[in-house]
């Protein structure tokens, strides 16, 4: 445990000292703050639910950027210079410790660098809205961070399997496009083609195949409420047995999305030549 923590610490320091991480931190912070500011205040009306297209843009921005950043950071870290990898792996520590340590450090980096935007927005939201608005925001950030973990693990998995930096980056970019775009277009197409109950089942089941969709739907439900999806939202909740169960299923599935790639990655890494 101590070793994992030390590796995480080193990973964290390496990444936070990186100027690209700093640039990302500053820009992401400005974007998130700008969006929450305009969403909260620019309308000039009070007593209206804060969810609006500005919140939707915040959601969108984070859903684009966070997986991408997690994938890039993860790939860079797990395909870093051979020399330092070899030295690290020759230490009397297990490969699992290295994997967990690096992932923990990477997650800490993402947590820390998004904290600038999310944190200062949280202060703003805490001051400008009531408790429930703040709680909604916190659970939204929680979901987004969960998404970043999933994509870090996916990146580690890809980097370990493909081993070469270029190949890993190609794969990772494909994964990003696939989960952000292609998957959804396929599902939308399927929904239009299929009929009735089959379409229902198809859509709801296919949600589980894409962590981005899970977090998007989950965040919309958290930030606004399921009514935002209209009839589809009602059907969704009925399909999963109510709001509470839907949320439990959501968290459970996201955990599965973390654990299975993590398990395979750690198995792969044990048999991988460094």
């Amino acid at each position: 445990m101590k070793i994992i923590f030390e590796i995480a610490k080193q990973e964290f320091v390496i990444n936070t000292r990186n100027k690209w991480t700093l640039i990302f931190t500053i820009i992401f912070g400005i974007l998130v703050l700008g969006i929450s500011y305009s969403g909260l205040l620019a309308e000039g009306f009070s007593g209206i639910q804060n969810f609006s297209r500005t919140s939707a843009s915040l959601l969108n921005l984070t859903l684009y950027i966070i997986p991408l950043i997690a994938l890039v950071m993860g790939t860079l870290s797990f395909t870093s210079d051979k020399g330092s990898m070899e030295l690290l792996f020759s230490q009397p520590i297990s490969r699992k410790q290295i994997l967990f340590g690096k992932l923990l450090g990477l997650f800490a980096t993402i947590f820390f660098s998004t904290a600038v935007g999310f944190g200062s927005s949280a202060i703003l939201i805490a001051l400008e809205t009531d408790f429930s608005g703040f709680a909604k925001y916190i659970s939204f950030v929680f979901l987004i961070l969960l998404l970043s973990i999933i994509f870090l693990i996916l990146a580690a998995f890809v980097a370990i399997v493909s081993f070469r930096k270029l190949k890993a980056f190609g794969t990772v970019l494909f994964i990003w496009f696939f989960f952000e775009l292609f998957y959804d277009i396929l599902v939308i197409g399927g929904t239009v083609l299929l009929k009735g109950q089959t379409a229902n089942t198809f859509v709801f089941i296919s949600l589980f195949g894409n962590p981005v969709d899970l977090v998007r739907v989950g965040s919309l439900i958290v930030l606004d409420n399921p009514t935002i999806f209209g009839a589809a939202g009602a059907q969704l909740l009925r399909f999963f047995g109510g709001e509470f169960f839907s949320f439990v299923i959501l968290i459970f599935t996201l955990s599965v999305w973390c654990l299975i790639p993590l398990f395979i990655a750690s198995k792969k890494l044990a048999k991988q030549d460094i």
């Binding site: 020399g83 330092s84 070899e86 030295l87 020759s90």
Partner: peptide, 14 residues
């Protein structure tokens, strides 16, 4: 054992 790789590289910003 302790091992020194062929090309030693360390993270640049440490």
């Amino acid at each position: 054992l302790s091992y020194l790789p062929q090309r030693v590289v360390f993270p640049e910003n440490l």
